[in-house]
């Protein structure tokens, strides 16, 4: 450090204007651009981000191969879009983006730089949720749409239907996995167990469990959009929409609630 560096003291502190009572915050309510920027750069700046790129890339490679080998076929397209894109890529990307939007900051303690600011905890959570949704949609819904066009040129509107379903699922998954990121240090593991075991295995074995599956709710949306009878969900559209909204809102509220009470201590 050079001794010639100008060091202007920041002057005496402002006279305190009195500290307002809790809950009288100002500033943006649902979206704080700086929180968003830090979240987004954190998400894409870590090694995990490679998976975000790898999964959609894998999807596109597979659909390219399927199209080349089997030609355009509505039933095949449906199987790949539901069986791989919606039930595999979307929950996995959701886990990475949802937990990654907040979990690492809580783990390493850097969240204190967000929490030690006059910003509502709810704003931090909703901002991070919007970023996670944006990332999940970008890395799932758009590749799914492309995949659908590659597979059968959007025949029976399958591409659009499953892209919409992916986007809807992205919202709910992001909220659920973001909540997990606040609740537990093992959010990725818990998220994977949920995504693969509950949505995958148990949903296929125990019929009742499928009613409580983000994937089935999303399929209900796809069913509404797609033509023909290839797409079928165990859940009615209105039930699905209500459950999607409830789960998303509930998870977001709970995440904000827990973040308000998040205890941070030193290394002692």
């Amino acid at each position: 450090m050079s001794a010639t560096t100008a060091t202007r003291p920041p002057g005496p502190p402002r006279p305190p204007a009195g500290i307002p009572a809790a809950g009288s915050g100002t500033g943006p309510r649902f979206f704080h651009p700086t929180v968003a920027r830090l979240t987004y750069r954190g998400l894409l700046g870590r090694r995990r981000a490679l998976l975000l790129f790898a999964l959609p890339a894998l999807l596109l490679v597979i659909v390219g191969a399927v199209r080349a080998l089997a030609g355009a076929d509505d039933s095949t397209a449906h199987d790949v879009l539901q069986g791989f894109a919606l039930s595999g890529v979307v929950p996995l990307v959701g886990v990475i983006a949802g937990t990654g939007a907040i979990g690492p900051e809580i783990d390493d303690g850097s969240i204190v730089y967000l929490l030690s600011k006059p910003i509502r905890r709810g704003t931090i959570v909703t901002t991070k949720l919007l970023v996670a949704i944006g990332v999940t949609v970008a890395f799932c819904a758009i590749p799914t749409l492309l995949a659908g066009f590659v597979l059968n040129g959007n025949g029976q509107r399958l591409a659009v239907a499953y892209a919409a379903a992916s986007a809807v699922a992205a919202v709910a998954y992001s909220a659920v996995f973001l909540m997990l990121g606040v609740l537990t240090r093992h959010a990725v593991v818990v998220g994977l167990v949920y995504a693969l075991l509950w949505e995958g295995v148990i949903g296929n074995v125990v019929p009742g469990a499928r009613t409580l599956s983000v994937q089935q709710w999303a399929v209900a949306v796809a069913q509404k959009i797609g033509r023909g009878d290839l797409i079928s969900s165990d859940v009615g559209l209105s039930t699905a929409v209500v459950l999607l909204v409830l789960v998303t809102a509930g998870a977001t509220w709970f995440a904000a609630h827990r973040l308000r009470g998040l205890k941070i201590t030193g290394e002692e």
């Binding site: 305190p16 500290i19 809790a22 915050g25 600011k117 006059p118 910003i119 308000r260 009470g261």
Partner: peptide, 9 residues
């Protein structure tokens, strides 16, 4: 639980 204190801390 009072975010406003951080204006001074």
């Amino acid at each position: 639980r009072n975010e406003q204190v951080y204006r001074q801390v």
